[in-house]
Simulated scan of single mutants.
Amino acid sequence: KEGYEGTLMVNKFPFFIIFLELDPSVVDFNVHPKKLHVRFEKEELLYNKVYNIIRSLVDEKFIEEEAKYISTDLNNFIPSNEIQVEKSEDLLVKNNTELEGVEILTEKEEIFEESVQLDLLDQIAGNQFGKKSFPDSYIRGKYIISKGFPKLRLISYTGQLNNKIYVVLEGTNENNEEGLFLLDQHAASERIKKEKLLATYEKTKIFKQKLIQPLKIEVSPSEKVFLEETLDDIKRLGFKFEHFGGNTFILREIPTIMNKLPDIHIIKEIISDITEIGKDKSFKDVKEEIINYLACHKSIRGGDDLSLKDIRNLLVELAACKDSYHCAHGRPTLKFISYKELDKLFKRTV
């Protein structure tokens, strides 16, 4: 389970068969009357070896090569008699080149193409014939309604869909196939926040901001015990709590990725939730789960309206992640549909 961590969705588990060749003298088979459990002489060494083997394969198959498998299969929408096996030369994979860096354009470097916007009557807006000029936002937001025809309109100029969960992009995958990408804005933001929190926890230099006016927070007795036992670990995540007395704590610092001071009720909710997560285990055992929770809590949400700058920053930061293709809970951040698949869907090719 830990070897697959971060690549499977919640409540999904890997199927596995493990073969171990060991000296029988290092295994105690008499731990359980029904032999349901055994004890190894060097459990930590064995655990690390099995974990590293599994994790290396997971990294290779689910992370490093993920872009090859995120394409949405459209064959279900194509009649079976029209699906033909592609020629072998079409299946050759081109040599991959690693991304050495992410190009970031400043506003001055942005290139805008001049375009002509047509109004709903297919006339050039504001032309010499005196046609009324419609604002771009009006044209994009106006549905075309006709009996026997679907209710349609243009998507927003940012590519963000109306449900404000997905963003439509176009590009090229690592196999040099051109097509459309669908971005889940919450999943992408959650991955970015998780890796930042992990980096903060694992580094001695913590990026945090002091509060001009510290928050005084009242907690429950169980939350008090949890905070007292984990103050140093929580501090490594960027939160600096001090025990003020009784069930009262003072919050003096928060991690910079929180951007601004959250409402005191949100801080109380965070304390309550991470206490519940870690009540029966040590912080080390639930560190990943707590970080996943915090990453989810401070991410862009489904329903948040994003600007062009927001979406571009999201893509730049996602591209720099170690695992760009999964959120903190294992869901995909991107899905790809090639133009070749669209051609098959519209029967331009068979």
Rank of each mutant, 00 (worst) to 15 (best):
S272P: 10
S88T: 02
I277C: 01
I53P: 00
V38Q: 11
E66D: 07
I270G: 03
K268I: 04
I78S: 03
L237R: 06
I63S: 04
S338P: 02
S80F: 12
L334W: 06
L45I: 15
L197F: 15
H186I: 05
S133T: 14
L231D: 02
K268V: 04
F283P: 10
K42W: 11
K235M: 04
G330V: 01
D122T: 09
E5K: 08
L231C: 07
L345F: 09
C327M: 03
L182H: 07
R252G: 04
L211K: 12
E65Y: 12
I234E: 00
K224P: 06
K268T: 10
I270H: 10
R331A: 03
Y51F: 15
S115L: 14
V116F: 08
Q84P: 04
T158K: 04
N176V: 13
L118A: 05
E21P: 03
V85C: 10
N247R: 10
E86I: 13
E103I: 09
L154T: 13
L198Q: 13
K12P: 00
E2R: 14
S220I: 02
E43H: 08
P262K: 11
I165A: 10
T248L: 15
P332I: 01
E103S: 07
L169S: 00
Y293K: 06
G141A: 12
A320M: 15
N173D: 10
K164L: 01
I270E: 09
R312S: 05
F19W: 13
F29Q: 04
L74V: 15
D73C: 10
K208V: 02
I212G: 12
K216M: 08
K108Q: 11
V219K: 04
K147I: 13
F249K: 12
E190N: 05
I290G: 03
